[in-house]
Design a protein around this nucleic acid. Structure first.
Lengths: 238, 238, 238, 238
DNA sequence: CATGAATGAGCTTTCATTCAT
DNA sequence: GATGAATGAAAGCTCATTCAT
């Protein structure tokens, strides 16, 4: 599902992991360890929940021994926090920039935004983090707050700015931007959660994510009364 | 199922409802026990997750000792299953009937439906079940399947029938009813999950459920192109 | 296996259990209770061992509730002790007397003794006591000692006296009466234990107790060099 | 299996047998563990019975912690089974061979057999297994069957063959070999059981095992009418 | 007296964590 | 650094015992 995983983004790792040391692969693995552990942990935490995941399983999935896990993360809880933090690394800056540059209609912007959410997050291991936070928010309040600041709020902000753009340009009609934001958010969150829970079980409805996303954006855009932008004010005078 | 919440916390409370039956206090407790235990268990399972909830806590919250819990539920897992089943007892029959009788516009029907979901489920302890199932679906596949059959599927069906009614009566324009259904479902599910997870944490956005629900239904209705029903075919003017 | 059980030999019971009170059967049961409980307890203790037998099972088998059991026996341990004591009630007096009166050859006496052991004890629930004591002797040393005094020692004594009689009358040749005693005892004890343990299991050898007993007595008598008694000393002189 | 008893009580005892393997103390312990645990378990199971023995006690007697026990035996029941199996490993092959080679009279063979039973089994921890099986046979039917096949049956077979040899060579007179077998078996079993139960208690008869065994074999041989072998048919005097 | 719901000490088992190798 | 054997606190569950009815 996930490409080889650049998720171990910024750890101890001194530099370009190969050349520096003269040892080649073995050395490399050593430096990759924390990342592999975090990956394994994410996988299992999402699948079984924090409490039901055994430290030994994580180690085993990462291909190391139990002892090694505790060499890198002093505590299961520490591991959990690291997993969450690791997978939150602000993609929003990048996105904000991207939307700043966007030139087309706001409708297209929203379509593009939802589609790329699916491609970059939703379809990725990272979407599991959402499920994880849902499940464990009340057991790890500091983490939940962290998640609010790093993900929820920026996400809201981003969406809200898109909607605002649409309103400002006369493309959308939105009675209350705050709540409308959830109209964008909810379908994506629901998909993310569904995938990692009931979506895995026997008897689950068939659902093509891309189509689901497309259908939701169109429904939404219709709801927002999407239309071509009003001509710029300057062109009013004949 | 559970009225807005006489909080499982308030213990025995010695007051009235005893004398009615000729059996005295102990007898009365015996009949109430399973319910009290299920209540307490729901509370804690939703709050902390299945694995992180200790049997003794449940017992304590229900005001009994550990042993008593196992007198009624032979296993923690059995307790969990009972909690899920208990809170699922077919509300859909009642609702289906209600919608069969509904006379107004389909837009009103949808508004009414979402509002009453909030009143009867969303604002209720029962909404915690959804979070529970999301978190534990993969650990309890049989239960997940049960949940699919008892809740997800009937829920979908109900919504789909409402949308279909709108389409049939010329009130809605829906490109794909299957996916549109999620447009109704997702905001409600999101609210339910949010309430029991991030919604409890510091830093969470303020959100007035009733307003949220109202906003979502309007957004949705707009998206569905809601309009007055087409006049019946027979009344065409010559 | 056991006749209706006169084992509740000497309890509270005021007199002839029927007429005194005007209540008939129900009253009677009440007075029989302890006996029924002891019976049930013996059955289960023998079958499953002391520790593995649950007080509730005993009560249930005796047809009363758990509470009632503790009404008669303040403790499981007390119950156990009562079971042992109850089933030890000295049959030896009776037997000693019987053997005092016995007129035939000592060989016949031994045959008769072993046969009647089987009939009166071996084939009876009472033989379970032996297994019980074997299994629990080290957990209940006082009981074990009691058992020694009440059963083992008198038993030995009885056998020894039979052997002595045989020697005195010139019927047996016994190098060491003490050890020879075990020659009589061991086969009976083995049978008793075997019956209540391996004898019940699949794959156990087929074994007809009466034949087993007969074979052992003959083997033994041969070993004792059994022969007709020497003519009484007084008849020596012509 | 177990030599006369370096008592499972004497703990780690730091002395010699380490350096041989290059693995150091911990490594060495790891290999010894299961054996030490089985020893401790045998000791306690025999002493107190299966149910009354706490897993923690076993661990403690073996000088390890509770957790370690479950590292080697996943279940108390598994431990029990291992104890029984461990102490049953076929001694019969060795013995059968030994008796095949035996040259003397069958009377001597029987004497030798009973004596060596005492030396190799009876006086050993292994004899406790018999008591264990007697006590727990009904609770562990599969084990009981296993015991039948591995011990009871081969034991019977061995004895029967000895008796048969005596009969074939004209040394014994045996009305029924099947039952006569018990004449050999019972005294040994009785001794084994007695040792581990009543034999430990105050008030038990004094009993010198070797003398007991000797006395029983002589009694038995007399019972079997033991005599010098009939001269081979070919040497008939003209 | 009899009952059986309730209790909680106690036992088996699990698993995060430590640490000798 | 890695390893995995060892640990023991903590959790699930049992059952002798109590006591209100």
């Amino acid at each position: 599902m996930v490409p080889p995983s650049p998720s171990a983004t910024d750890h101890p790792a001194g530099s370009s992991p190969y050349e520096a040391t003269g040892h080649g692969r073995r050395e490399r693995r050593k430096e990759a360890r924390p990342g592999e552990l975090l990956d394994a942990a994410l996988e299992l935490f999402v699948q079984k929940g924090y409490a039901a995941t055994r430290a030994e399983e994580v180690a085993h999935l990462a291909g190391v021994s139990k002892g090694t896990l505790f060499l890198y993360f002093s505590t299961k809880e520490e591991l959990f926090k690291a997993v969450v933090r690791e997978n939150l690394s602000g993609r929003f800056e990048e996105w904000n920039a991207e939307f700043e540059r966007f030139e087309g209609s706001t409708a297209d912007m929203l379509r593009y935004g939802m589609r790329s959410w699916w491609e970059r997050i939703g379809s990725t291991r990272a979407s599991g983090i959402t499920k994880l936070m849902m499940s464990e928010a009340r057991n790890f309040p500091e983490l939940a707050e962290f998640f609010q600041h790093e993900v929820i709020r920026p996400g809201h902000e981003l969406i809200r700015r898109i909607l605002q753009r649409g309103v400002d340009r006369g493309e959308f009609t939105v009675p209350h931007i705050g709540y409308a934001t959830y109209g964008v958010l909810a379908p994506m969150m629901y998909l993310a959660l569904w995938q990692h829970s009931l979506g895995c079980c026997a008897g689950a409805a068939e659902l093509v994510p891309q189509d689901y996303i497309a259908a939701q954006s169109e429904l939404l855009l219709a709801g927002l009364g999407a239309r071509a932008p009003a001509p710029p004010a300057s062109t009013v005078h004949p």
